[in-house]
């Protein structure tokens, strides 16, 4: 098992390096550099040129890349052109919001997926199962952004059960109970929108897994021993079917990233996804690069975590 983990880690590092090179080359292709927007247009051109030389902006690309990478390891992601502040600081605020949104989404995803998957698998080919399968079928075909828009329209505007934008009600003091409640209230609708769409593949997987396990020999043995139906399901089948589901959460990160980009835009929720779209539109490229780098690294690490958990849970994967 350790062999597998080491081998998986060896694959991860080149991935991270290639990701950083792609982003760096993208940054080079983008108009402007660290000095644009910072200097006063009245300053002499020769002085700017001298400054550029001093900052190393005229170096060949591989030296610039090493500079850039070592800066990142020291927590220096550059300056935001629009906000006139450190990208690190800007990203930090937004990241907290997106982090909680993701946590809420993951919780909802599993709260919805596990019971539905179990019901659907346990009572397969009943009316209940076909309605759940119908939901997953339609959910699979529905683009997230349309669903989120409809949710916002119905629950935000028509019924007015939830706030329609922002991450906290204006005027609430940080640290109070009201503040926390307002935060949670603002999270619910966006998180639920992503979860209801994202969960369908997990439901489908859990269902087919349970239907599959139901016919295994060890289940028949358990029944023959006289184990009650609930014991067969809770102790024997679920133990086999639930673990892979739990391991999938790393892969879900990639889906979450896509989800937050759309949903934060629709609910005007101040998180990383919204920051990303805003920065691209405003051509604030140092922020764009930082966000892509963080999200990309998160996706790569998520896949790593999932693969490792899966290898622990399912020894067959390790053989390859």
């Amino acid at each position: 098992m350790w062999k597998f983990i080491v081998r998986r880690l060896i694959i991860t590092f080149p991935q991270l390096i290639v990701l950083s090179i792609i982003i760096f080359l993208m940054a080079q292709a983008m108009p402007g550099d660290a000095l644009t927007g910072l200097v006063d247009p009245n300053i002499d051109r020769a002085a700017i040129e001298e400054q550029r030389e001093k900052l190393g902006l005229n170096d060949p690309w591989h030296i610039k890349y090493v500079d850039w990478i070592s800066g990142i390891f020291q927590g220096d992601l550059g300056q935001s052109f629009r906000y006139k502040m450190e990208v690190t600081e800007l990203v930090e605020q937004r990241m907290i919001n997106t982090f909680w949104l993701s946590v809420a989404t993951l919780i909802f995803t599993y709260i919805i997926a596990v019971p539905l998957g179990i019901i659907s698998g346990r009572y397969n080919d009943t009316l209940l199962d076909s309605s759940i399968t119908g939901y997953t079928y339609i959910g699979f075909a529905t683009p997230l952004f349309i669903f989120a828009l409809v949710m916002l329209w119905i629950f935000g505007y028509q019924l007015q059960w939830f706030p329609t934008g922002g991450s906290v009600a204006p005027g609430t003091e940080p640290g109070t109970i009201d503040y926390v409640m307002s935060k949670i209230n603002h999270l619910l609708l966006p998180a639920l929108s992503i979860a209801l769409i994202q969960t369908v593949s997990t439901v489908q997987y859990l269902r087919s897994e349970i239907v599959d396990t139901k016919q295994r020999d060890f289940v028949i043995t358990a029944r023959a021993k006289g184990a009650s139906e609930s014991r067969v399901y809770n102790r024997h089948i679920l133990r086999n079917s639930l673990l892979p589901i739990a391991a999938f959460f790393g892969y879900e990160i990639t889906m979450l990233i896509t989800g937050t980009i759309f949903v934060e835009q629709i609910f005007s929720f101040p998180g990383m996804g919204q920051l990303f779209i805003e920065s691209v539109l405003q051509r604030d490229f140092s922020v764009v690069n930082a966000v892509v780098l963080l999200f990309g690294a998160a996706a790569i690490l998520g896949a790593l975590i999932s693969d490792i958990i899966l290898s622990v849970v399912d020894p067959r994967i390790r053989i390859k």
Binding site: I11, Q15, I261, F276, V292, A299, A303
Partner: peptide
């Protein structure tokens, strides 16, 4: 397959958006 793994794990939407904008 390692090349493919790498492409598959990247957040598709973000890269398309960045490339479209540059």
């Amino acid at each position: 397959m390692r090349i493919l793994d790498f492409f598959q794990v990247l957040p598709f939407i973000m890269l398309v958006i960045v490339f479209v904008s540059i």
